[in-house]
Structure formats: structure tokens, C-alpha cells
Lab assay of single mutants.
Amino acid sequence: NRRVIAMPSVRKYAREKGVDIRLVQGTGKNGRVLKEDIDAWLAG
């Protein structure tokens, strides 16, 4: 149960899109989840 590193704005964006942020692979520094990662996850 790893802790997800993401800015609050990215967490909010994921919530609005209905994405469980824990399932998204972060590509930022130290595995940080970026807004682009959410978009990529939604695109498949």
C-alpha cells in the first residue's frame, strides 16, 4: 500500500475524472503522478 506522490490539484483532477490515482503510474520526479499521467491513463 504505497503512498502516492501527487500535487493536490492533480488529485482533484483525478477525482473529477473518476480515476483511482493509486492505479496510475507516475512519470514525474520520484514517481510523482502528473496531470499528463492521468490523461494517459484515461486514453488507455
Rank of each mutant, 00 (worst) to 15 (best):
N30L: 11
G26T: 03
G26H: 03
N30D: 15
G44C: 07
K29P: 12
D20F: 05
D37R: 00
D20N: 10
R32H: 10
K35C: 07
L34Q: 10
L23H: 11
R11E: 06
R22M: 11
V19P: 00
R11T: 05
D37P: 00
K29N: 10
R2K: 14
A6R: 03
R3F: 04
K17V: 13
R22P: 02
T27H: 07
E16K: 12
R11K: 11
T27R: 07
N1F: 01
T27G: 05
R32E: 14
I21K: 00
V33Q: 02
A14I: 01
I5Q: 06
V4F: 04
A40D: 12
R3P: 14
K35V: 10
N1K: 15
G31R: 06
I21T: 03
N30A: 10
Q25E: 13
G26N: 03
G28R: 02
V24L: 08
Q25L: 13
S9T: 10
N1R: 15
V33S: 01
L34N: 08
R15F: 13
S9D: 13
D37H: 02
V4M: 06
W41Q: 04
S9W: 08
E36G: 13
K29T: 13
R2S: 10
T27F: 03
N1A: 14
I38D: 00
G26M: 02
D39W: 03
L42F: 08
V4A: 08
I5N: 06
L34M: 12
K12F: 08
I5E: 09
G18H: 11
V19T: 03
R22C: 09
V4R: 08
E16S: 13
K12Q: 13
G44I: 14
P8E: 10
R2D: 14
E16N: 10
D39E: 07
I38A: 00
G26R: 03
V10F: 01
G44K: 15
K35H: 09
R15T: 12
R22K: 10
T27D: 02
G44Y: 14
R22F: 10
N30G: 12
V24N: 00
R22H: 10
D20Y: 05
R15Y: 14
E36K: 15
V19Y: 01
E16I: 12
R3M: 08
A43R: 15
K35A: 08
L23P: 02
W41R: 04
V19M: 04
R32Y: 09
A14R: 00
N30V: 06
G44L: 14
G31A: 07
I5C: 07
L23S: 10
D37E: 01
G31F: 06
K12M: 09
I38H: 00
M7L: 15
N1M: 04
K29F: 12
K12R: 14
K29Y: 11
V24F: 03
R22W: 10
N1I: 15
K17N: 12
R11F: 11
A43Q: 12
V4T: 08
L34Y: 08
D37N: 06
L34K: 11
Y13K: 06
W41D: 03
K29D: 10
P8R: 14
V33N: 00
D37I: 00
W41L: 07
E16F: 11
S9A: 14
L23Q: 13
I5Y: 04
D37Y: 00
M7P: 12
R32I: 09
A6P: 04
R15E: 11
V24W: 02
L42A: 07
R11S: 05
A43K: 14
L42T: 06
A6M: 04
A14M: 01
V24I: 13
L42W: 05
G18W: 06
Q25I: 14
V19I: 10
V24S: 01
R3V: 14
A6V: 07
E16A: 13
V4W: 03
K17H: 14
E36V: 13
A43T: 13
G28T: 03
W41H: 09
N30F: 13
V19W: 00
Q25P: 14
R32T: 09
K35S: 07
R15S: 12
G28V: 02
R11D: 04
K35L: 11
G18A: 07
W41G: 02
G28L: 02
I21A: 03
G18T: 04
A40L: 14
D37L: 00
I21F: 04
Q25V: 14
G18K: 09
R22L: 11
A40K: 14
L23D: 10
R32P: 02
N1G: 15
V4E: 06
I5G: 05
G26K: 02
Q25M: 14
R3W: 03
V24G: 01
L23W: 11
Q25A: 12
A43D: 13
V24R: 01
A43V: 13
D37A: 01
L34T: 12
A6K: 03
L34W: 04
P8Y: 05
R15N: 12
R3C: 07
L34A: 05
E16R: 12
Q25D: 11
Q25R: 13
R3G: 12
N30S: 10
K17A: 09
E16C: 08
G28Q: 03
R15K: 15
I21H: 02
K12Y: 06
Q25C: 10
D37F: 00
V24A: 04
K29Q: 13
A43E: 14
I5F: 03
G44W: 12
R11L: 09
R2C: 09
D20L: 06
R22D: 07
P8Q: 10
S9L: 08
V24D: 00
D37M: 01
K17D: 01
D39V: 05
A40S: 13
G31D: 06
Y13I: 09
L23N: 10
I21L: 09
N1P: 15
E16G: 09
G28H: 03
K35R: 14
N1H: 10
L42R: 06
V33H: 01
V33L: 05
I38N: 00
L42H: 05
V10W: 02
G31M: 06
S9P: 07
K12N: 08
Q25T: 14
L23A: 10
R15M: 12
R15G: 09
K12P: 01
I38P: 00
K12A: 10
G44M: 15
A40I: 11
D20G: 03
R2L: 11
D20P: 09
